[in-house]
Design a protein around this nucleic acid. Structure first.
Length: 491
RNA sequence: CGGGGUAUAGCGUAGUCCGGUUAGCGCGCCUGCUUUGGGAGCAGGAGGUCGCAGGUUCGAAUCCUGCUACCCCGACCA
């Protein structure tokens, strides 16, 4: 099944597509730009969701749900917001179909035109702030810490499975605060949660920082982001957290009475990660043998494959395998015992390898005799034969090791592909030939960023938060600069 | 949305230029037997409105027109 797929070197984007399709993560649907997330892919997303959801709840947030449709008039209330999203909105204009006059099909009933068109949400700030207006009167009503898990639609020109689809799944947090400082603290807290999730669950090292004005969210005062480096040397924005100031409060007239009995506008944040994280996960760790998953997000952490000649042998092996399965499950490890007789062991090995299952246990007649089991790890493809005693602790330990190793590998890759660059020629050379993160000085102007983008396709991915101030000269204009920023080509 | 390419069985493809038997092959699928420590072997079998809609023709996978989807490159973007 998973034979004949591309390698990263041959064709990186084909390699990515092959993994998504052949590892059964997702496929294209009958609707242009929209994907079907298949059970195996969705299981990974569910693991991401539950880990993130717990982190949100642990920091005081609650889930709620707002409509998928937004009245057009709401949408246009915040000027830069509408400007940023107008070009990619799906619009509902009618609410009824009818049979066509020639009886051959079904058409839109022109009599059923909506008084006011509805926008399919590309994000929910407007409908949520219109709602918050009714929820907030006094400082006692604040803060509001709400998240929603939802689908959104952005009508993109070019789509790629998980990385950019017309409809995608995400979570969007929308918070309301009495003070500016509190809203900024919330924005930063959520950024840290995203970074924590990326590094500890996805085994994906990320840079934390802010966006340049060019790349800022439409309607935000400041956009914070986490940026990760993919194996082809391109950057992937993996999560954003926005400090919205009072922009939406002013647009929707959301005020509260402070302790001092003064009427003030509410301060806001919003933050989100999407199914794009699936793309990041795939591109961060996978190899030319297929998907590689960090144990903490793998739907199946351990697969057990029996090898046998006769039915009675299978019965003996199954007994042993089920014992191991139970012992592992007791430790909270997800195990699949694949005793299907319709596939041969070699076929199963390749299958689970391609699907990125972190650990494979093999039990055959030899193992029954010797009280052993063969254990193979997906990240390094190493195999060894272990005594079956205490196997659950050995497996648990190995899963932890794999999780660490994947992070370490991704981290070294990023280190090896991050360059301090001070000459424009070198900058162009590295961006063109190698890719990666380039740390260079920037004069802080939009014009310079635009020019660099035109000439090299590289953009400022982030202005790192943990930056050491350093006097220098802009890589492009030579004007004075106080810190380095991160340039890269981006997804 | 602009440029280029592709569309034939579940998947990959031959045939298309130059119209003419029953549209061929590999993988997969089904049945049976032999197999099982890295994608098994043999035998038999099923599966096709040739992307969709028109047109030209005695005759269209093949020629013409329109549409749709997908891939690559740009612009846009999480």
């Amino acid at each position: 099944m998973a034979k004949n797929f591309s390698t990263r070197q041959e064709n990186y984007s084909q390699w990515y597509n092959d993994i998504v399709i052949k590892a059964d993560l997702a496929e294209n649907s009958a609707v242009r730009g929209c994907m079907v997330i298949k059970p195996y892919g969705y299981a990974i997303w569910e693991k991401m969701q539950s880990a993130l959801d717990k982190m949100f709840k642990d920091t005081g947030h609650s889930n709620a749900y707002f409509p998928i449709f937004i009245p057009k008039s709401f949408f246009s209330k915040e000027a830069s917001h509408v400007k940023g999203f107008a070009k990619e909105c799906a619009v509902v204009t009618h609410y009824r179909l009818k049979n066509s006059d020639d009886g051959k099909g079904i058409i839109v009933d022109e009599d059923a035109k909506l008084e006011e068109e509805l926008i399919v949400r590309p994000t929910s700030e407007t409908i949520i702030w219109d709602t918050y207006k009714n929820w907030i009167q006094s400082y006692r009503d604040l803060p509001i810490l709400v998240n929603q898990w939802a689908n959104v639609v952005r009508w993109e020109m070019r789509t790629r499975l998980f990385l950019r689809t017309t409809e995608f799944l995400w979570q969007e947090g929308h918070t309301a605060h009495a003070t500016k400082d509190e809203a900024i603290a919330e924005t930063k807290q959520m950024l840290n949660i995203y970074a924590d999730f990326a590094e500890n669950w996805m085994a994906l090292p990320v840079l934390k920082g802010t966006k340049s004005p060019n790349e800022r969210f439409a309607g935000a005062i400041e956009t914070y982001c986490i940026e990760a480096l993919m194996q082809d040397g391109k950057a992937l924005q993996s999560g954003t957290s926005h400090f919205l100031g009072q922009n939406f409060a002013k647009a929707f007239d959301v005020k509260f009475l402070s302790k001092e009995n003064k009427l003030e506008y509410v301060w806001a944040s919003s933050w989100g990660v999407s199914t794009r994280l699936m793309g990041a996960l795939i591109m961060a760790h996978s190899d030319d043998n297929g998907l590689v998953l960090p144990p903490k997000l793998a739907p199946i952490q351990v697969v057990i494959v029996p090898i046998y000649k006769k039915e009675e042998q299978l019965a003996q092996i199954s007994e042993k395998a089920n014992q191991i399965k139970k012992a592992l499950q007791k430790k909270g490890i997800s195990v699949k015992y694949d005793d299907r007789d319709t596939f041969k062991p070699g076929w199963k090995f390749s299958e689970y390898e391609f699907k990125g299952v972190p650990v494979r246990l093999v039990i055959g007649p030899r193992d029954l005799e010797n009280e052993t089991v063969e254990i193979a790890r997906r990240d390094t493809l190493e195999k060894e034969v272990l005594k079956i005693t205490d196997i659950e602790n050995k497996v648990e330990h190995l899963l932890e090791q794999i999780q660490k190793n994947l992070f370490q590998k991704a981290y070294s890759f990023r280190e090896d592909n991050t360059y301090k660059v001070d000459s424009w020629n070198e900058f162009k050379e590295i961006i063109d030939k190698k890719g990666g993160f380039l740390l260079s000085h920037w004069d802080g102007t939009e014009e310079t960023e635009e020019k660099i983008k035109e000439e090299t396709k590289a953009t400022i991915r982030t202005i790192p938060l943990d930056n050491n101030p350093e006097e220098g000269k802009c890589i492009y204009t030579g004007k004075p600069s106080k810190q380095r920023v991160v340039f890269a080509k981006a997804y």
